[in-house]
Design a protein around this nucleic acid. Structure first.
Lengths: 157, 157
DNA sequence: GAATCCGCTGGGCATTCTGTTCAGCGGTAC
DNA sequence: GTACCGCTGAACAGAATGCCCAGCGGATTC
């Protein structure tokens, strides 16, 4: 679970050029192929690397608007609300947060107008008491993990 | 940019089993290898598929605590704050939102205690007027895109 | 209607990588 | 000292990749 320096380099290299194979990595990192392979296997079974799924850009799919909705849930309705939101494709993520019965919900929509439709669909459910929405304008720091990996690798020294 | 049904199946298949190669995909989808290859190239240059980077789990790296910080920025300090936050590894994402000078910041930490340190580092900066933090407890819906892809593929019919 | 463009097919080619196994070796723990 | 563990370097067959090509059907354009 503690990340090694070599582990870190592997992850970073993989993040920069996902196309490189194990052989090429071993060449660049100056270690044997088997080593890289073993490290990768370990990282995957550790759960550090969850997978290599394609990173899809909602904007390119026609959903350029992102928003966050803070939901207040009626006591005991949590499970129902979750099940409901899970069925809405525009709900990209759902988190429960501190505060009694609060959830944070990441949404996308085709346009600001379309966002209204999405919100209606999300909020139009019994268990939800109140909802407030915030629209995302810019993304100065897009979702990233590399700096964290590098720090972990440094400390894991 | 409009997503085809076949495009959708390719993305879904890729998400479920990232290991499958182009050849295997063509077999499962019942189309020629060249077709899959062409589609993939198009999806990548379209920007629909950004890449295939490793999906790293911060929790497995030793950062099991996730939080969101809402920051209120002093007029005209936006750029400085962004630059500052970009240097903090624990800042996984930074978004500017509606509301004057507001930002939303996704954080991780090694523990609840460690979160204090991270927040101090984030907030300890001139341009930030006020900050409120929310800790994430559960993740009923982890970041996902597949349902959206499927919907887009259906509509793009 | 005829010509043109475009995407998919199915095949072939040389090159390259993968998965797997092996023996050897150095460092560390007991 | 001995056993354990991780890395090395090498080997092998099998498989996938990148690339190219001719043919074909459908849709578009003139």
């Amino acid at each position: 679970m503690a990340i090694d320096h070599l582990d870190g380099r592997i992850i970073v290299l993989l993040a920069e050029e996902p196309r490189v194979g194990v052989l090429e990595m071993s060449r660049r990192l100056g270690v044997a192929r088997g080593t890289v392979q073993a490290r990768l296997d370990r990282l995957r079974s550790n759960g550090v690397i969850r997978g290599f799924g394609p990173q899809v850009d909602p904007a390119a799919l026609g959903y350029p608007v992102t928003a966050f909705a803070t939901l207040q849930i009626r006591q005991g309705q949590g499970a129902d609300v979750r099940a409901h939101l899970a069925t809405v494709p525009e709900v990209l993520e759902l988190l429960t947060t501190t505060g009694n019965g609060d959830m944070l919900c990441r949404l996308v929509a085709r346009s600001n107008a379309d966002l209204q439709r999405v919100i209606d669909r999300v909020v139009g459910f019994d268990g939800i008491v109140r909802a407030s929405t915030t629209i995302v304008m810019e993304t100065p720091v897009p979702l990233r993990v590399i700096p964290l990996v590098e720090q972990a690798a440094r400390e894991g020294r």
